[in-house]
């Protein structure tokens, strides 16, 4: 069963369409990495899932419930962390925990204590005195302590140092695995997400370009390194649609392809007959992210080269 289902969701800020006909599903227990450049619509999508915004068209369900009709019981099972979420700054962390705990039947005090220790948060300091990173850690603590079934995180690694990030990623992986949490996380921190995610979605300018399991992703997105395809080397006049990025730095040409499932280096020799060596490997999230973001620019560049 899908923990998150979205069908044809559209959202507008006045005349700007932030999301256009977005549809996706996140299976229960999955860690879903929602990627996209700034302004792609990731935050809006997460806010819709958290019930903070109402879609102008389409529908979204979390844990089987329409997001516009989330009740108290549903919200007890959803954790939401976002950069810029306004925690009550006048409270100390201890007071905030005491305020929130009665709202959740499954509030885990020992987990809260452990997270506070792990994050090195002073429970008696007012939240308004926290640094940006501490603020985010406090928000995470408040989201994780109720042991939610669905965790929505928007840029959760903001302001965190490498050690805490690493700890958090591992902690999340552990919890998601052992407790069956579903995690939807939007972040620019691709290196941290890569080991965490088992599903990935890519939004650009309000459009969902892809949404698939990491297994499928890794199988079809490949990085192809062509050596020997120098200045004198012939270059294909037209490139296949599945080539997202073509970078030429003589004597090398680097490709990111989206349809590389099952293809080895020989499959690309028809385009580069003069190549001395062609290597194919899995593309990283970062490589695909950059390729998708720059695909229009790269397409123009390729056209220029080909001409």
């Amino acid at each position: 069963m899908a923990a998150v289902e979205i069908a044809g969701v559209t959202y507008r800020y006045r005349r700007v369409e932030a999301l256009s006909d977005v549809s996706l599903a996140v299976p229960s227990g999955a860690v879903y990495a929602l990627l996209g450049p700034n302004g792609a619509g990731k935050t809006t999508l997460l806010q819709i899932l958290a019930g903070l915004r109402r879609p102008a068209a389409g529908w979204a369900r979390v844990l089987g419930k329409d997001v516009t009709a989330l009740g108290v019981g549903d919200r007890q099972a959803i954790g939401y962390v976002a950069e810029g979420l306004r925690l009550p700054g006048w409270m100390t962390l201890r007071q905030l925990e005491a305020y929130l705990a009665p709202l959740y039947p499954e509030w885990d005090r020992s987990l809260a204590d452990e997270l506070r220790r792990r994050f090195r948060l002073d429970p008696d300091r007012r939240i308004r005195t926290f640094s940006r990173g501490e603020h985010m850690k406090a928000a995470l603590l408040c989201a994780l302590a109720p042991r939610p079934r669905l965790l929505l995180m928007d840029e959760p690694f903001t302001g965190m140092d490498v050690a805490v990030k690493d700890e958090l990623v591992h902690g999340l992986l552990e919890s998601a695995g052992t407790e069956g949490w579903t995690v939807v996380v939007a972040s620019h921190d691709l290196a941290e997400l890569e080991p965490l995610a088992d599903w990935v979605g890519f939004l650009d300018d309000g459009h969902l370009l892809l949404s698939e399991s990491m297994e499928t992703f890794r199988a079809r997105f490949r990085r192809v390194e062509v050596v020997g395809a120098g200045e004198s080397t012939s270059f294909p006049a037209t490139v296949p649609e599945g080539w997202l990025s073509v970078r030429r730095a003589a004597p090398r040409v680097s490709l990111i392809v989206s349809d590389g499932d099952g293809l080895d280096g020989d499959a690309y020799r028809r385009w580069f007959p003069d190549a001395t060596r062609i290597e194919v490997r899995e593309a990283t999230l970062r490589e695909v992210f950059v390729a998708l973001v720059r695909r229009d620019q790269d397409a123009r560049r390729v056209e220029g080269v080909a001409a």
Partner: peptide, 15 residues
């Protein structure tokens, strides 16, 4: 606050 997408209470199980 009753409005805004960054309000903390709205993400909590509160009526």
């Amino acid at each position: 606050a009753p409005m805004g997408s960054d309000v903390f209470w709205a993400t909590r199980p509160l009526y």
